[in-house]
């Protein structure tokens, strides 16, 4: 395997347990499967593909790993129409033009040509920047499924060999392999070739215990009994057939709302007046009200 022979600094973690501990120090509560998968990705030197519904902390995971390992986070946000010039590198045309004009007419073609295709005129985009760094780096490729399929082909070279070929300069090898996290909402299937090169982690809605811990960590000053009830209600909402299921971020928002309103217990009226924080579709609110046995809500 070529990738295992790439220069790699000393491992960042000793055990999955240490991953969990270090992540919790930066306020990311990782379950054991998350910790183990992050540990394996780091040890095997493979990119980590994180899939799951919106708002379960996929992007947060990358940020937390960066914070826990004292690494810089470089982020490539994917969108429809993302191209090489935005993802890899681009030549700084205007600067090259200036250089040609400044050189005057006596400069030879060969010399000018060599001069304008140098590092000075290269605009490094996230992928190239992440590869060229000497310090620990976490490369986050966010919402990979939003990018066009052609971009996946581009990622293959970067992610399996950690190198980028620039025709005028040659091949740039990674000085130090970055920890790569790709996230996807699964709005479309990523290609098999890309998936094969990654470790896969599916993040789902958290267990009640973990969600309770998250809310307590994120919303200081909230009462424990209220959190218990809140988490219970959200877990129930997630079992309903809704258009948009509440995410962790929305649970936290709900907790903040209840705290701000000074609510001490989750009763019918408290839920009815604040349901809009977690359910953003009228039909979802009506359905939830019916299933939870609230008299009438949302109207």
């Amino acid at each position: 395997m070529p990738e295992s022979e790439l220069p790699s600094a000393s491992p960042a973690f000793d055990s999955p347990g240490e991953v969990a501990k270090r992540l919790s120090e930066v306020n990311y509560l990782a379950e054991s499967d998350i910790a183990t998968t992050v540990f394996l990705a780091e040890r095997l030197g493979k990119p980590l593909l994180v899939e799951g519904p919106a708002g379960v902390g996929k992007t947060e995971l990358a940020k937390a790993v960066a914070a826990a390992t004292d690494a810089d986070l470089i982020r490539l946000q994917c969108y429809e129409g993302l191209d090489e010039a935005r993802a890899l590198y681009e030549w700084n045309y205007s600067k090259q033009l200036l250089r040609i004009q400044a050189a005057g007419s006596d400069a030879t073609w060969e010399k000018t040509h060599d001069d304008i295709f140098t590092d000075e005129f290269l605009l490094a985009r996230p992928l190239l920047r992440a590869i060229r760094r000497d310090d620990p780096t976490v490369l986050l490729i966010d919402e990979t499924d939003k990018a066009d399929i052609e971009i996946e082909g581009l990622l293959l070279e970067v992610l399996s060999d950690f190198q980028i070929t620039i025709p005028e300069l040659g091949t740039v090898q990674a000085a130090r392999r970055p920890f790569v996290v790709l996230t996807s909402n699964a709005t479309r299937e990523l290609s098999e070739a890309l998936k094969r090169r990654c470790l896969y982690l599916h993040l789902d809605y958290p267990t009640r215990e973990r969600e309770r811990d998250i809310v307590v960590a994120r919303v200081p000053g909230i009462e424990a009994t209220l959190v218990d009830q809140l988490v219970e209600v959200v877990a129930t909402l997630r079992t309903l057939e809704l258009k948009k299921v509440p995410s962790i971020a929305e649970t936290v928002d709900w907790a903040r709302t209840l705290l701000a309103l000074g609510t001490s217990t989750m009763d019918e009226s408290a839920i009815r007046s604040t349901l809009g924080v977690v359910l953003k579709h009228q039909s979802d609110q009506l359905r939830a009200a019916k299933e939870l046995g609230l008299p009438c809500a949302g109207r």
Binding site: D33, L40, A41, E51, A186, E192, K195, Y200, L201
Partner: peptide, 8 residues
């Protein structure tokens, strides 16, 4: 799961 399972 991380290595061979690529689809939830």
């Amino acid at each position: 799961a991380a290595t061979v399972l690529k689809r939830q």
